[in-house]
Design a protein around this nucleic acid. Sequence first.
DNA 1: ACTCTTCGTGAATTCGTTTTCAGCATACAT
DNA 2: ATGTATGCTGAAAACGAATTCACGAAGAGT
Lengths: 336, 336
Amino acid sequence: MSVTTKDVARVAGVSVATVSRYLNGHNVLDENREKIEQAIKQLGFRVNPIAQTLRTNRSMTVAVLVPTLANIFSMSIIESIERCLDQYGYSIMVCGSRGELAREEEKLRFVRDKRVDGVIVIPVGSSGSHIAEIVGDDIPVVLIDRVVDDVRFDAVVVDNTNAAYHAVEQLIIKGHRRIAMIAGPQHIYTARERLKGYRRVMSDYGLAIDEDLVLVGDYTSDTAYGLVKELMQRDPRPTAVFVSNYEMTIGAIGCLNELGIRIPEELSVIGFDHLDLSSVVKPPLAVVAQPRDEIGRKAAELLYARMSGDTTSFPSLIRLKTRFIQGSSIAEHKSG
Amino acid sequence: MSVTTKDVARVAGVSVATVSRYLNGHNVLDENREKIEQAIKQLGFRVNPIAQTLRTNRSMTVAVLVPTLANIFSMSIIESIERCLDQYGYSIMVCGSRGELAREEEKLRFVRDKRVDGVIVIPVGSSGSHIAEIVGDDIPVVLIDRVVDDVRFDAVVVDNTNAAYHAVEQLIIKGHRRIAMIAGPQHIYTARERLKGYRRVMSDYGLAIDEDLVLVGDYTSDTAYGLVKELMQRDPRPTAVFVSNYEMTIGAIGCLNELGIRIPEELSVIGFDHLDLSSVVKPPLAVVAQPRDEIGRKAAELLYARMSGDTTSFPSLIRLKTRFIQGSSIAEHKSG
DNA sequence: ACTCTTCGTGAATTCGTTTTCAGCATACAT
DNA sequence: ATGTATGCTGAAAACGAATTCACGAAGAGT
């Protein structure tokens, strides 16, 4: 059926061992090299990566495991990982955990059995013991976006706390006092960190936090829509709001548009993630932008280093900076 | 190192053949079944999928090959494919062709060598002969979003021509005559189809097409930004514009906002794709929405059927309907 | 001229499964 | 009692590569 090293060996008049050595870049007599190259070309030989993997336990594949594929954050990251690892000859296998621990475990077992050489994962929970247990020490792991608190892994994250801190600080500087926050689900690392940033800056500026203005969503657009609706019924209303992820920003803006609330005259708004947004919304939205490409690239580079046996400064926590995009959605607030 | 069928066989006191038969659901003496199950549990045995693939040439994996990973269209589709095939025990391997034919070929060869059981691809060009040549008849292929004109493949697409037709028709019905279109690159199937729809409806309504109002972009946001800027310098200006993909819609809206052009008072706008957009933009944008989940699901189901040996009505072309979201970005035009 | 390395080689084994094939029961029909 | 289905079994041969090992032919050193 398909052409194997055995065929190549036969045609070239050498043994399969020599063919194999040639393929793996070992030394081969020039004479044999030529005959082998000729035979390979003539037969259209391509090495069978499956057989290779069975024998060597290396697959030149890394797994990327994320809670959900269909959001811009995951996708940009997957794209940049693919681009980066492609250069080194690695391909990627993507899996969705759908935010379920059981599925995360199941997928990890699956890719381990598939002999992937490395794993990049956005963990669903704050524990990583199951990850360590499943992939063991054989397979390098790099966490993205979130860290776990019980196992030491390499990780690439952004400085969520500072990002939130600086964003809210902008509002404070402009005179806002009643600043609301649409927070994310507190079982998710980034959501906790961002809320922490909010609390910290409020505290640092000596502002009391009205807990009625801190609404906890679930990182989805629909829920945020409802929360903002609820928020705008507070009396007195907040004069500004910080929304802490992309999907929720979408929902929030949609709601405000529908309520006919003018930005920033009636409400100053800072969104999160996704640059496009800031230009599409009128007025241009101030947002916290994550360096998505860089996250993916750094994670891929780090994983590649680990897969190549480089264990320098393990575990290394790479914390990237976010960027604040000014926009025009923040108004000066004449304090009262 | 790892525990194999041989170990299971030894512990259970049967032969590896019997273990294999048990694993593949063949008949086995109840007595042996019990002993094997016990041994498997005791040893924590997991079948090695690589060895399985080597032997059977089946990997329970399908490849998804798209021009770019990092856009919402690709990702939604990949997500729904993953969800669907996950049920059947298949996992997916995603690859990006970056719109380059050479890379598409290279990736196809790669996944074929990896013994994927099926391929779902958004082809970069309008020819599919290289696809047929590389994957041959062994591996089922389902095209998505675009069709090729030289080979018959199963395909799942949307009715781009009608989508554009109906969208522009809305504008015509509201009295618009100077209707601009931001078209996509004409080497891409969907872009051609959408432009065709525009031309057809204009012709059907007996409207002359001002070629100065048909600007061809490259499906990217930045280019569309420039094109819209150019467009608005036309004299007389168009009274409406139809933008024919998501990224270009982003760029167009961004530009219009920046120019301070009021929608729909000064310009009626219809965008493309991505529901979120219609709510975030003020006023809510009229858009043509593609049934992204359905595209992915149908493609996955079809591929699954093919992989299972069902060749009913091959090749089948599934053409899905788009949905027109009304929005408030279209004004009545008092014709002059 | 002699041993001692070094280098490239081929035969054979291995990776962990599935599958073929003959063998051996047992059950059934005659 | 004999013959033939039927059902399950284990030994062995795949699948296609990498690797171990012993070996022969050079080259180096004395």
